[in-house]
Amino acid sequence: MEKTSSPYQWGMAIDLDRCTGCGACVVACQAENNVAICDKKEIAQGRDMHWLRIERYWTGEYPDVRVRFLPVLCQHCHDAPCEPVCPVYASYHNQDGLNGQVYNRCVGTRYCANNCPYAVRVFNFYPHDWPKPLDNQLSPDITVRSRGVMEKCTFCIQRIRRAKEEAKGEGRPVRDGEVQPACAQTCPAEALVFGNLADPQSRVARLSRSPRRFKLLEHLGTHPSVFYLKGGGREHV
């Protein structure tokens, strides 16, 4: 991982042995980030707007079938394929190791989404509205994206900002566990752990050294900030 001037390198560990696939993170993410509601037609057309999805893979045949769940969100790669291809810098890398997305700047070439091997970038094909009074639920901390714009998981950057400001006000670094994205916060099984990878004592950093760890599509050399921990012993013991 590259060293930067920032004391924070945000990262996440996803323990597949804990993940039950329940979907709480998916709704929490949608609730936190003003992610649009997509009707059946939109999803049928492959225009689902979820920033976080749980992939479900089947292996084997009855009765020896196994199910694997894989929560996939933006991996916040350090060598992110999405970033260099954007002609207008809408997709950029911030000092804390996050892949940012500037909605105002995005012209909608969708090149970033093509080049994202994890397919976690979602595009606003439709103009979305929230029928009244459903619009009351929209969070004032995040932009409501217009059509024609690419969007994606930000690790709940609004929460990170808030925590950093508060910590700065109190003249201390952000404590481990003080800031959590909505998905990690709600995960019943605590499969998602978020924190500062630059702090070797943080929970996520300790998990990132686990022998079970792996990165998704590691061979592509994208250097994600998201680690997965292998689901142990799903097979016969």
Binding site: E42, Q45, G46, R47, D48, G108, R110, Y111, A113, N114, A119, R121, V122, F123, N124, F125, Y126, P127, R147, G148
Partner: peptide, 15 residues
């Protein structure tokens, strides 16, 4: 005037 949804592109086929 309507949006890119009038095309056939989608995720993952963005082009």
């Amino acid at each position: 005037t309507h949006g890119m949804y009038v095309t056939g592109i989608n995720r993952p086929v963005m082009w």
